[in-house]
Amino acid sequence: MSAPHTHAHPVAHGHDHEGSTLGEMDVRVRALETLLTQKGYVDPAALDRIIETYETKIGPHNGARVVARAWTFPDFHAWLLKDATAAIASFGFTGRQGEHMVAVENTPAVHNMVVCTLCSCYPWPVLGLPPVWYKSAPYRAKAVMDPRGVLADFGVTLPEGTTVRVWDSTAEVRYLVLPMRPQGTSEMSEDQLASLVTRDSMIGTGLALPPGAAPASVGAKA
């Protein structure tokens, strides 16, 4: 929490009072956890476990491994496009917000982009928890009408004539974009390839990184 906000306000200034807002939410959420624990409705150790799972085990590094395998093994590629739920489950990536998976493949002719205009549906087992922008009004409003404008917001321009195919996740089907494999990667191992697969490339607001642009470790950065 920030220090008390005491300076004078002679003119409008360029920040809002996030410090005090965070403080209020901290207090409110702490009070709720105390109440629910006293009631016996939640076990604080279970809350810790849920948070730890998404902080350490489940994140876009999972999806990057799936994509790298699809780039490497034609049989897995075919399986992923035919039955993504089963193919992804072969890594042990299953469950909440990924019960019914579909993989959609980018090609030179078609670029896929995934959105949830109604809330924040997102394939948790392969990508983890969604970033703030994915849940934000600008993305949910714009993706279905002006996806090329969204890509421009991300600094991405597609070749002219590429069809943009937007998938609005309005049911419990969750979509994983299989990005195009970058050129010049034919000698790379599955682990090396995974380091080129960004989170955004698996949502469709980015592209996989060219070789040499990625950190050495298996990452899945934004």
Binding site: E33, V132, D153, K221
Partner: peptide, 28 residues
Amino acid sequence: FGPVQPETDEPLFHAQWEARALAMTVAM
């Protein structure tokens, strides 16, 4: 609503209360 504004190196949670709120929602 304006442009989409991705955040560089975005943290998983922007405050501790967000993590607890997510976990309580899942647990309840």
